[in-house]
Amino acid sequence: MRKLIESTFMSLNGVIENPQDWSAPYWDDEHSGYSLALMEGVDAQVLGRATYESFAEAWSQRGGDPYTDAFNAMPKYVATRTLTDLTWNAQPLEGDAAEAVKRLKQEDGGSLIKFGTGSFSKTLLENKLVDEYHFWIFPVLADGDNMFHGLGLDMTHLDLLGTTTFKSGIVVHKLAPKA
Rank of each mutant, 00 (worst) to 15 (best):
G152D: 08
A79F: 10
D69Y: 03
D154Q: 00
E94N: 07
D69R: 01
L151D: 01
Y77E: 03
N146D: 00
A50T: 14
G64N: 01
Y77A: 07
W136F: 14
P66V: 14
V140M: 02
E99C: 08
D131A: 09
T87V: 12
F148A: 09
I113P: 00
A90K: 02
Q106V: 00
L104P: 12
E57M: 09
G109Y: 11
L93M: 03
S111L: 00
S54E: 11
R103S: 13
E99R: 14
L104E: 07
S60V: 12
D85W: 06
L104R: 12
G95P: 10
L141I: 15
V140T: 15
T117Q: 13
D96N: 15
H134M: 11
W88A: 10
A142R: 08
G150W: 09
D69W: 01
G152K: 00
A142I: 12
M74F: 04
T156G: 00
H134N: 15
G152V: 06
A98P: 05
I137A: 10
T87D: 00
Q61K: 15
E53A: 12
V140R: 08
V46Y: 11
G63F: 11
D108Q: 13
T68I: 09
A98H: 07
S54F: 10
L83S: 10
D108L: 01
G150D: 11
G110R: 06
L86F: 02
P75D: 10
L93T: 08
T51A: 02
F148K: 00
E94Q: 13
G110T: 10
S119G: 04
T117W: 01
V140F: 07
L141G: 11
L93F: 13
G118Y: 07
D96K: 04
A50M: 09
K102Y: 04
M155K: 13
Y133R: 00
T84G: 13
G152P: 00
F120L: 11
V46C: 15
L104W: 07
W59D: 02
Y133T: 03
A98S: 15
M147Y: 15
H149W: 07
L86V: 01
I113K: 08
G110Q: 11
F135C: 03
T117Y: 00
W59S: 03
D143S: 12
Q91M: 14
T123H: 03
G110C: 08
T156L: 06
G63H: 05
S60N: 14
D143C: 05
K128V: 00
M155C: 01
K122F: 06
A142C: 08
L83G: 09
A100R: 04
K122Y: 10
L141P: 08
E132K: 12
R49K: 10
Y52K: 04
A58G: 12
R49I: 05
G95S: 07
D65A: 06
S121C: 05
G110Y: 10
F55R: 02
F71Y: 11
Y133M: 04
T84N: 09
G118P: 07
A79T: 02
L93H: 07
T80V: 01
L153H: 04
D85F: 06
A50R: 15
G150C: 10
K105G: 05
N146T: 11
T68H: 00
E132D: 08
F71N: 06
L151E: 01
W59L: 04
